[in-house]
């Protein structure tokens, strides 16, 4: 399978990439690692007239300790998230999620910015940034702006990014040893989650769901229950509340609702165990 013809523009800076987006408008797409976009183009589900290659912006690939938060460059590959000592210490959920994306070869190419901008409700990283309460930074012709993760995902593969904006970094509040868990249910190696859950405890407990609606989303009823002191089983019982899960060969909606409860219950138990192990349970 070969993508439809397109023109390739190689950007040597974020500013050059934005300029190319401004010039070509809706006809252009950014190309980072290409592991979300190229498969769609090969299937001819996407046929942008212009690709702006930002894969060479090495200065946008980093994981940096910035005091209260960790800053991750949008071009950071999953492999580099997986092996980052800074994330292991300050946001282990993100490293654990990255380590389960696709397979090693995919993780050598795919980037966090590319995955988030793709906005696929079945992918893992959107749930991670939702659970971590991250802030996404985008640059456009008018400068840069901050978008809280909870305002970023608008619909099926639709995000808050404008056509002329590029995601540049992701800021993740440090989790200070609070418990976390990542649960991913699938039936084939390297597959997308049929349903998954990313959980980050702390002063504001957050629970995010994978593949439970048209967009990545938080399980707000569960979050309220956890904040109110509910047990994992009680909190997980309302995990699918407000969700409209997709139906496909793997699962119908009722099965996904059930899976969401199971994933969230297991995740809350695991996260609480990790909190206790790090002494957090005595703090909160």
């Amino acid at each position: 399978m070969i993508p439809a013809p397109f023109d390739l523009v190689t950007a040597d800076s974020a500013e050059a990439a934005v300029a190319a987006l401004v010039e070509h408008g809706d006809d252009a797409k950014l190309l980072a690692g290409g592991h979300s976009l190229l498969p769609l183009m090969k299937l001819r589900l996407a046929a942008p007239a212009v690709l702006v290659d930002i894969g060479r912006l090495r200065d946008r690939s980093f994981v940096r300790d910035d005091g209260a938060h960790v800053t991750v460059g949008a071009l950071t590959r999953h492999r580099d998230l997986e092996t980052s000592p800074v994330l292991a210490e300050h946001a282990p959920l993100l490293a654990a999620v990255a380590a389960q994306i696709g397979d090693p070869a995919v993780r050598h190419r795919g980037t966090i910015g590319g995955s988030l901008a793709h906005g696929d409700p079945a992918s893992d990283l959107p749930a991670a940034v939702l659970a971590l309460g991250a802030v996404l930074v985008a640059v456009g012709p008018g400068g840069s702006r901050e978008i809280p993760a909870e305002d970023f995902f608008h619909g099926f593969m639709d995000t808050a990014l404008h056509a002329d904006e590029m995601l540049t970094e992701i800021r993740i509040p440090k989790t200070a040893g609070a418990g976390w868990s990542f649960q991913k249910f699938n039936r084939r190696a390297q597959d997308w989650a049929i349903v998954g859950a990313a959980i980050q405890l702390g002063p504001t407990p957050r629970v995010a769901l994978i593949n439970m609606d048209m967009q990545p989303l938080r399980a707000s009823a569960t979050e309220s229950a956890v904040a109110g002191g509910a047990s994992p089983a009680e909190a997980a019982a309302v995990a699918a509340e407000g969700c409209s899960p997709p139906e496909d060969l793997n699962a119908d909606a009722a099965y996904r609702r059930h899976l969401a409860q199971v994933m969230v219950r297991r995740g809350l138990v695991e996260a609480a165990g990790r909190s206790a192990a790090s002494g957090q349970s005595t703090v909160t």
């Binding site: 290659d53 070869a105 390297q190």
Partner: peptide, 26 residues
């Protein structure tokens, strides 16, 4: 041809990648 099977795996700068999902120009 969908980056699932790995038959096309090669090394780029020493790391395994699936060459059906990488543009030569990249």
């Amino acid at each position: 041809d969908t980056s699932s099977c790995g038959a096309c795996t090669v090394h780029v700068d020493g790391e395994a990648v699936k060459s059906c999902t990488v543009l030569a120009a990249q």
